[in-house]
Measured scan of single mutants.
Amino acid sequence: KELVLALYDYQEKSPREVTMKKGDILTLLNSTNKDWWKVEVNGRQGAVPAAYVKKL
């Protein structure tokens, strides 16, 4: 499985998103959308802005 690093804090704004903190390591589930990537963090799945994460 592919991992990404959170470059910034992000507070979810809808139920389809997830909150992450700078430095979090997230499991990347889907990166086909260039703006929003689906990730899993702390057992929750949701979208985060692609510009806020970097593939490891």
Rank of each mutant, 00 (worst) to 15 (best):
18 V>M: 11
34 K>G: 11
26 L>F: 07
33 N>R: 09
25 I>N: 02
46 G>I: 10
9 D>R: 02
56 L>N: 03
18 V>K: 01
37 W>F: 08
42 N>D: 13
28 L>G: 01
21 K>H: 11
54 K>W: 07
27 T>V: 15
9 D>Y: 04
1 K>L: 13
12 E>N: 08
16 R>T: 14
52 Y>E: 05
31 S>L: 05
35 D>A: 10
23 G>K: 01
14 S>V: 04
5 L>T: 08
2 E>C: 15
7 L>D: 01
14 S>Q: 07
56 L>W: 08
2 E>A: 12
23 G>W: 05
29 L>C: 07
28 L>C: 04
36 W>C: 07
10 Y>T: 00
53 V>P: 03
23 G>R: 01
55 K>T: 09
35 D>F: 15
40 E>Q: 08
51 A>C: 15
29 L>M: 08
4 V>D: 00
53 V>W: 01
24 D>L: 04
43 G>A: 05
18 V>G: 02
19 T>D: 04
1 K>V: 14
6 A>K: 00
56 L>S: 03
47 A>T: 14
54 K>A: 12
49 P>E: 04
20 M>C: 07
56 L>H: 06
19 T>L: 03
24 D>I: 03
46 G>L: 11
19 T>M: 04
23 G>E: 02
51 A>Y: 11
34 K>W: 07
11 Q>H: 13
45 Q>A: 12
15 P>E: 12
18 V>Q: 03
36 W>K: 02
28 L>Y: 02
19 T>H: 04
29 L>G: 02
12 E>F: 08
36 W>M: 07
42 N>M: 09
49 P>F: 03
31 S>W: 09
22 K>R: 12
12 E>M: 13
52 Y>W: 07
11 Q>L: 13
41 V>P: 00
3 L>A: 07
30 N>Q: 10
46 G>F: 13
36 W>Y: 08
53 V>R: 00
21 K>P: 00
27 T>C: 13
11 Q>S: 12
7 L>Y: 03
20 M>A: 02
23 G>Q: 02
1 K>M: 13
56 L>I: 14
8 Y>L: 11
2 E>M: 13
1 K>N: 11
41 V>S: 13
20 M>G: 00
44 R>G: 04
12 E>H: 09
44 R>P: 01
52 Y>N: 08
39 V>H: 00
15 P>V: 10
11 Q>M: 13
13 K>G: 08
33 N>H: 12
32 T>Q: 12
21 K>E: 06
20 M>L: 09
16 R>P: 06
39 V>D: 00
26 L>K: 00
23 G>D: 06
24 D>Q: 13
30 N>T: 08
3 L>Q: 11
3 L>G: 03
14 S>A: 08
38 K>M: 15
45 Q>N: 07
46 G>K: 05
49 P>N: 04
12 E>S: 15
45 Q>P: 07
44 R>T: 07
30 N>R: 07
45 Q>T: 13
47 A>W: 15
14 S>I: 04
39 V>I: 07
35 D>E: 12
1 K>S: 11
23 G>I: 02
34 K>E: 12
22 K>D: 02
38 K>N: 13
13 K>R: 14
31 S>P: 07
27 T>S: 08
48 V>P: 01
8 Y>P: 01
22 K>V: 08
19 T>E: 03
42 N>L: 08
15 P>S: 12
32 T>S: 14
45 Q>C: 12
2 E>K: 10
11 Q>E: 14
4 V>K: 01
48 V>F: 02
16 R>M: 14
16 R>H: 15
56 L>G: 03
35 D>I: 13
42 N>E: 10
6 A>F: 03
10 Y>M: 00
51 A>E: 13
18 V>T: 05
38 K>D: 15
45 Q>S: 12
53 V>Q: 01
39 V>E: 00
2 E>F: 11
30 N>K: 07
53 V>I: 09
5 L>C: 12
6 A>Q: 00
42 N>Q: 10
49 P>Y: 03
41 V>E: 02
43 G>S: 06
19 T>N: 06
26 L>N: 01
49 P>T: 02
2 E>D: 11
43 G>L: 04
50 A>Q: 05
38 K>G: 09
53 V>K: 02
5 L>K: 07
45 Q>D: 07
50 A>M: 04
1 K>I: 13
46 G>D: 01
56 L>F: 10
20 M>F: 13
13 K>E: 08
29 L>F: 05
9 D>L: 02
38 K>P: 02
34 K>F: 08
33 N>V: 05
13 K>C: 13
41 V>C: 10
8 Y>H: 11
39 V>P: 00
22 K>C: 07
11 Q>I: 14
43 G>R: 04
42 N>G: 12
12 E>Q: 13
13 K>N: 11
3 L>I: 08
30 N>M: 08
52 Y>M: 15
27 T>P: 12
52 Y>A: 14
28 L>W: 01
23 G>A: 02
55 K>C: 12
30 N>W: 07
35 D>L: 13
4 V>Y: 09
34 K>I: 10
47 A>M: 15
48 V>Y: 00
24 D>C: 07
30 N>A: 11
36 W>T: 04
24 D>A: 07
40 E>C: 11
29 L>W: 05
33 N>K: 08
39 V>G: 00
29 L>H: 06
50 A>D: 04
18 V>S: 01
19 T>P: 06
29 L>S: 03
30 N>L: 08
10 Y>S: 01
55 K>W: 09
28 L>S: 00
54 K>S: 11
34 K>R: 11
5 L>G: 02
13 K>D: 07
40 E>Y: 06
26 L>D: 01
16 R>Y: 14
37 W>V: 09
26 L>E: 01
55 K>S: 09
43 G>C: 05
56 L>Y: 09
15 P>H: 11
3 L>W: 14
30 N>G: 08
35 D>C: 13
20 M>W: 02
47 A>R: 15
32 T>R: 10
56 L>C: 14
33 N>E: 11
50 A>E: 04
56 L>V: 11
49 P>V: 02
44 R>I: 08
26 L>P: 00
15 P>Y: 10
14 S>P: 05
